[in-house]
Design a protein around this nucleic acid. Structure first.
Length: 475
RNA sequence: GGCCCCUUCGUCUAGCGGUCCAGGACUCCGGGUUCUCAGUCCGGCAAUCGCGGGUUCGAAUCCCGCAGGGGUCACCA
């Protein structure tokens, strides 16, 4: 075990989308690579915004992607509890220390009064700074007022593992709230206390916290703490490429992707590739490769747009690397209803035929339904076929009857079928586009299917001939 | 408005002073794979590296301005 300890610290206010999960992923990769620990901490200090059940949903999402944590609310650990609402006494104690050292004071204003200060600042096109209104004789803190940090404004220069060297002037330092009037700590205070108590070595978080980092540095000083390594991730942008990806604008729950049959390793590969690369031309990575090759200093500083098309491609590519057994296991639950009765061996053969064209498992029913159920003859398939529609019915009938007679002699193995189909091409003097299309339509009644000989072999002789007979009757 | 961050093909990106009139991938377009859809293989379109100045023999790469985009300025995280 190294002393690398990273954490993912979401607030339970809803589901996790691709943007949120990436912060978790990078923290997880770093911990795994350095043989460290990855901690899940729930930041549930805002009762108003909390969404019931979202804590469980969050944990489920992490597990679904394989981002297992070593310490967390549901599994405990040496620095628990890992739910901030259960750590109130700790924050009180640290707050008390700041009060005693004169670095925290009770906020005497009403919310309306503070709001008025803010409006005034906005009116003057100035940034709002509470410390401009810092009371000279604040009342004793009795817990009913917000407790504010007494900041020590000064310039800061610090290093960010992703963004590089950063610096700001004293004008950004302010007296922010440590403890709210309801007794809960703010994020600004709680995360610093917890990261210290939990021995966190690297803070990996989104860009929205960049502006408040100098304030955190000021608080670290007041608490006599050494700040962890900071790594600021750029935002993932929505499809429009402007705003950061957000639930409001329809960002999908990562669990929805899993439900649609995206592979966890493909999701992880894709999410990692938004803003990270290993400096080579490699695009596809296994989880182990990501753990091995990940590095914060190869993380992009600019935002990346979420492109679902690329995700589909990547998922398909991962699907194609799976062994048939493995693929079969993963595809459980995605079969069309009609497949229920069929034997594993049959379904596995079907799966083998569609493996190279699957993009995600939810496509399985439309791709394979005809292997399990006899679809009604669809005249549209011939009527809309560019070659077949030119032929008259009796020609088609005659052609298909010939096919039926020949296939009746076949043992329906792929080599034998291939051989006979090829011979039919010459004996009927038809182009593949005509002959094979006709057979394919007759035997599948589907607009698309895997290769003809393969499909026929899997369907079997009896069923194939029966379907040809059905087509003959309909002609 | 103040402060901060960002800026290479439509998109994800490689690039860290010369090997780049910029490479890969997705998408798109053509062709092969004796039918379809997909996959796969081959080929193609596509960024004068946001703009303008410098530094240098030489800049996508360093410096300075400018512009555009984003973030932040909550008793939300």
């Amino acid at each position: 075990m190294s002393n690398v300890r990273t954490r993912f610290a979401p607030s339970p206010t809803g589901y996790l989308h691709v943007g949120g999960i990436r912060t978790a992923l990078f923290a997880w990769l770093l911990a795994r690579q350095q043989n460290g620990s990855f901690i899940l901490r729930l930041e549930d200090t805002d009762k108003a915004r909390e969404v019931a059940g979202s804590d469980a949903h969050l944990m489920k999402s992490l597990r679904a992607l394989g981002l297992t944590y070593d310490e967390g609310p549901d599994i405990g650990g040496p620095y628990g509890p890992y739910r901030q609402s259960e750590r109130l006494a700790t924050y009180q104690e640290w707050a008390r220390r700041l009060v005693e050292s004169g670095r925290a004071y009770a906020d005497p204003y009403t919310p309306d009064e503070v709001q008025e200060f803010r409006r005034q600042a906005q009116h003057e096109h100035q940034p709002f700074l509470y410390r401009n209104h810092r009371p000279t004789q604040p009342p004793a803190w009795d817990g009913t007022q917000p407790l504010r940090f007494k900041a020590d404004p000064k310039p800061y220069a610090w290093h960010d593992a992703v963004m590089g060297d950063l610096h700001t002037g004293p004008e950004v330092i302010d007296d922010f709230v440590l403890i709210k009037s309801d007794g809960y700590p703010t994020y600004n205070f709680a995360h610093i206390v917890d990261d210290a108590e939990m021995q966190i070595s690297h803070i990996i978080r989104g860009q929205e916290f960049l502006a408040s980092t100098p304030n955190y540095l000021n608080l670290y000083e007041a608490l006599d703490l050494i700040p962890p390594i900071m790594a600021t991730m750029p935002h993932i942008l929505g499809p429009d490429g402007k705003k950061k990806l957000s639930k409001r604008d329809g960002a999908k729950d990562v669990l929805d992707y899993i439900r649609e049959g995206y592979l966890p390793e493909a999701m992880v590969n894709f999410i990692a590739s938004l803003g990270w690369n290993d400096g080579t031309e490699q695009e596809l990575f296994t989880i182990d490769e990501l753990i091995q090759k990940f590095s914060l200093d190869h993380v992009q500083r600019s935002g990346a747009r979420f492109d679902e098309q690329r995700l589909q491609w990547m998922n398909g590519a991962h699907i194609r690397t799976l062994s048939l057994d493995e693929l079969y296991n993963r595809a459980q639950g995605y079969w069309p209803d009609e497949a229920g009765e069929y034997a594993d061996a049959y379904k596995q053969r079907v799966l083998g035929l569609v493996q190279e064209r699957l993009k995600y498992f939810a496509e399985l029913p439309e791709l394979t339904r005809f292997f399990f159920v006899d679809l009604p003859v669809n005249p549209e398939l011939i009527a809309s076929h560019k070659q077949l529609k030119k032929l008259d019915t009796s020609t088609l009938h005659q052609l298909l009857q010939t096919v039926r007679d020949v296939l009746n002699e076949s043992n329906f193995t792929v080599p034998d079928l291939t051989e006979r189909l090829n011979t039919l091409l010459t004996t009927t003097d038809q182009k593949p586009a005509v002959l094979f299309s006709l057979i394919r339509i007759a035997t599948t009644q589907a607009p698309a299917s895997p290769g003809l000989a393969d499909s026929l072999a899997v369907l079997g002789k009896e069923r194939s001939l029966q379907r040809i007979d059905n087509q003959l009757c309909a002609l």
